[in-house]
Design a protein around this nucleic acid. Structure first.
Length: 553
RNA sequence: GGGCUCGUAGCUCAGCUUGGACAGAGCGACGGCCUUCUAAGCCGUAGGUCGCGGGUUCAAAUCCCGCCGGGCCCGCCA
């Protein structure tokens, strides 16, 4: 809706100057209105006139009507204020569209979005969590924006890790008392330790890998059993945080179906291909000094080679390919893009997120040194329960547990989604699970408070807006901006925009709540309708982050 | 050493793509606000050379160059 206001301002400015120029619009701080243009500074140069005077002349030419309530020229800026009619239309639009407000029509563009893709050698830790949360939120945002999104989890079943886990499971067994993924991790850690102490067993690992690549029946079965076993545990964890993948794609598929051979054959015919002891690609032309090795000297393929095949497959099955990778994959990502460019396939859009460290400690599944997502989730729910228990003595156990679970899990998603991916995060329990203002409870509390108010009022479509105070205006403006924010989040692939928007919206609401009474007020219907719209937007935005809005807390 | 990336209040972040009006929040500190829709809230005070130095511009946190500091990568691992 906000864009309608912008369009109108632009159109009216265009008419006023009578020149076909691009009109820069920006949102000034509140005291200067709702929209502002610096157009006059540019015109000043061209016309050799004082910008102040140009602004005043232009402002006079624009009559306030429809969505524009007021036009003011100040020091060369022209500032615009939106009208009560705009407010009414915003509310009506939200009421009409409800859950679809902010969404877009189907675009008929197929997107394959790969995220999480953790090795099946143990449970997900917080780092994987960042990947999964960014990926899942983005998938939701893109779907909402009209894209046809399929999420995929790429299972690295051909790497050394899984071979070591298989070796460990055979040698030490699988602890059936533990959750699947933790049991596999236990075998994996034991095996690593064993191999360090008995390096002569390394050749066993190499043999397993070779046999798996060759498709030796019983070995294939062993690998799949362990991978599936571990994945079952991983899926349970993902389910807890409301994440589901449409497809799990095994790396080995691309060896079995021959695509990786086909890809290598195609690469051989290009000028980038070199064959010394091993096959490799020279990517100097793409600004990459490091050569991309395609095969080992024993002829087996490397991870990146199979990943190229996977991406060729994705390229054929989608219009847009998106990957979420950790910062350690920066170089691989560039190599991958270059290889796909050479093959004339769709180049993936790769979102790189920086690592999460925990008080300076770097996580390693191999050494069994990590904080698992499961532990984090449990801890978060526990802390949330303590809070609910403290504040809602009047409620029964069932209520407290339910709220604690939703709040605890959502808080993790929110904490991680809020920060831009390129930012290195130092994970601190005290902050992630502290129910501070920038966290989820602040947002959920706004939603719950609105629900309480609306219970007491019968909403009518027959309301009018006579005037607006600063709190009402702030809310209207934010509500009207939601579609624009979603659009931006989808285009720039930044879920963090949604989270930060939610903080702003909740903040605007809480301030409104403090100063503007709804029930029994002269403006009861307008305000109730405004809050109803706010509630819808809060819920829609929370859903984009995979968080269920709370009716009560 | 090379490549990529980040550097905004004591701490965690927003703003940077499309340069504009005194740089915004939260946490922490201090001081206030519950007879009225849940105080998981609100208001106020203190706290900033936007890493440093140049450049472009009427205008730079934002664009360009250099430097410094942190992170990641530079394996016939994944």
């Amino acid at each position: 809706m906000f864009e309608k206001f912008e369009e109108e301002v632009k159109k009216r400015l265009q008419n006023a100057i009578g020149l076909d120029v691009d009109i820069p619009l920006s949102e000034p701080s509140e005291e200067f209105g709702d929209l502002s243009t610096t157009l006059c500074f540019e015109l000043a140069r061209r016309l050799r006139k004082n910008p102040k005077i140009i602004a005043e002349e232009l402002a006079k030419k624009i009559k306030p009507e429809n969505y524009i309530k007021e036009v003011k020229a100040v020091n060369g800026y022209i500032n615009f204020y939106f009208s009560e009619k705009f407010a009414e239309d915003v509310i009506k639009t939200v009421k009409k569209l409800k859950g679809r407000y902010g969404s877009q029509e189907k675009k008929n563009i197929k997107v394959i979005l790969e995220h999480t893709s953790a090795n099946p050698d143990g449970p997900l830790h917080i780092g994987h969590g960042r990947n999964a949360i960014i990926g899942d939120s983005l998938a939701r945002i893109l779907k909402f924006s009209g894209y046809d999104v399929e999420t995929q989890y790429y299972v690295n079943d051909m790497g050394r890790q899984l071979a070591v886990a298989v070796f460990g499971a055979k040698k030490f067994g699988i602890n059936k008392d533990k959750k699947n993924d933790f049991a596999v991790a236990e075998a994996y850690v034991k095996a690593n330790k064993f191999l360090e102490e008995n390096p002569e067993y390394e050749k066993e690992i190499a043999k397993l890998m070779k046999e798996y690549e060759e498709g030796k029946k019983d070995v294939v079965k062993e690998f799949h059993t362990i991978a599936d076993y571990c994945l079952k545990g991983i899926k349970e964890t993902l389910k807890k945080i409301n994440i589901f993948h449409d497809k799990f794609v095994f790396e080995s598929e691309f060896v079995r179906n021959g695509l990786v051979y086909e890809v290598v054959e195609r690469l051989k015919k290009t000028k980038y291909f070199e064959h010394n002891e091993v096959m490799q690609l020279n990517l100097k032309e793409f600004g990459i000094e490091k050569k991309l090795i395609l095969t080992r000297s024993d002829g087996t393929f490397l991870y990146t080679t199979r990943d190229i095949a996977y991406h060729v497959w994705k390229s054929r099955n989608a219009d847009v390919v998106i990957d979420i990778f950790g910062a350690d994959h920066k170089l691989v990502a560039e190599q991958l893009k270059a290889a796909l460019r050479i093959l004339n396939e769709k180049v993936p859009d790769i979102i790189i997120y920086e690592f999460l460290t925990i008080e300076g400690m770097k996580m390693s599944t191999r050494k069994g040194r990590f904080i698992s997502l499961d532990e984090l989730i449990d801890e978060s729910i526990k802390r949330a329960y303590e809070e609910v228990d403290k504040r809602r003595k009047d409620k029964d156990e069932k209520f407290k547990k339910s709220v604690a679970e939703k709040l605890g899990i959502g808080a993790i998603r929110f904490y991680i989604a809020r920060v831009a991916p390129e930012k290195h995060m130092v994970f601190k329990f005290s902050e992630a699970l502290d129910f501070e203002k920038h966290g989820l409870p602040f947002v959920q509390y706004a939603h719950a408070r609105i629900c309480r108010i609306l219970e007491k009022i019968e909403l009518s479509n027959d309301f009018s807006v006579e005037s607006m105070d600063e709190y009402e205006k702030r809310l209207i403006k934010l509500v009207s901006k939601f579609p624009k924010i979603v659009n931006k989040a989808a285009e720039e692939k930044k879920p963090s925009l949604i989270a930060n928007y939610l903080i702003n919206l909740a903040d605007a609401f809480h301030r409104f709540y403090m100063f503007d009474r709804v029930v029994g007020s002269e403006k009861e219907q307008f305000r109730a309708n405004l809050l109803y719209s706010t509630k819808i937007v809060l819920a829609n935005a929370l859903n984009l982050l995979g968080i269920e809005p709370l009716e009560e807390m």
